[in-house]
Design a protein around this nucleic acid. Structure first.
Length: 204
DNA sequence: TGCCAGGCCCTCTTTAGGGCCTT
């Protein structure tokens, strides 16, 4: 069975809440198909105001860099074409989902569809990790460390690697096909403490 | 540096509170 493609994305933003006026300042994403990155998207975007010193330090994205970047609307229009109607994945998807929905709404584009969360999956599948921050999971799962953290494309690549490792673990542990969102639906439908009971190994 | 928000999940819970995770 062909494994459907997914887009793993990550936003850098001016803060934590689009409802409080925060905006996206960078988008990074990878298109995964057949367990591999087959395409990618990355762009800074100018939110129209200066970001705080904390955000400059946290992301390494300066106001000077943003001043030269295209506006959010232009970037998000191109990004909407990149994701089309593909299922989406992010680490702490509730965060990226809010910003994606807000930025798409600003340009009159269709809202995002299915959105899976590598953090929630990791909490279920890798409960022994020290914590479930993206950077910690990369080390815990012995995945290649990126050249930078807290930049959109690097974080999207890491989240993609965590996603693939989680799929592989589920496939090996529960012997179900790695069909995105089918196992997500099943996994998300039961409380954490019942996951082991829910997935009974299939016939050898 | 850590607050701002919001969803998930745990527990000394469920008529609630607080930690985690994202920038």
């Amino acid at each position: 069975m062909a494994v459907p493609a997914v887009v793993v994305l990550d936003f850098e933003t001016s803060g934590l809440s689009p409802a409080q006026g925060d905006r996206a300042i960078e988008i990074g994403a990878v298109l995964l198909r057949g367990g591999e990155v087959v395409d990618q998207f990355q762009s800074l975007m100018n939110p129209g105001f200066r970001v705080s010193g904390f955000i400059e330090n946290y992301t390494g994205i300066s106001n000077a860099m943003l001043a030269k970047a295209p506006p959010c609307a232009e970037v998000m229009a191109r990004f909407a074409g990149f994701i089309r109607d593909l299922p989406l994945v992010a680490h702490n998807a509730s965060f990226d989902g809010r910003f994606l929905a807000a930025e798409l709404q600003r340009i009159g584009a269709a809202p995002p569809g299915r959105f899976a969360c590598t953090m929630l999956n990791a909490r279920r599948i890798f409960p022994g990790a020290p914590n479930h921050r993206l950077e910690t999971l990369v080390d815990y799962l012995r995945l290649p460390r990126p050249e930078a953290f807290h930049r959109a494309l690097a974080d999207a690549r890491m989240a993609g690697a965590v996603w693939l490792r989680t799929e592989a673990e589920i496939t090996a542990r529960y012997r179900i096909d790695p069909v995105p969102f089918e196992w997500m639906r099943r996994l998300g439908s039961v409380p954490k403490h019942r996951v082991e009971a829910f997935f009974q190994p299939g016939p050898a």
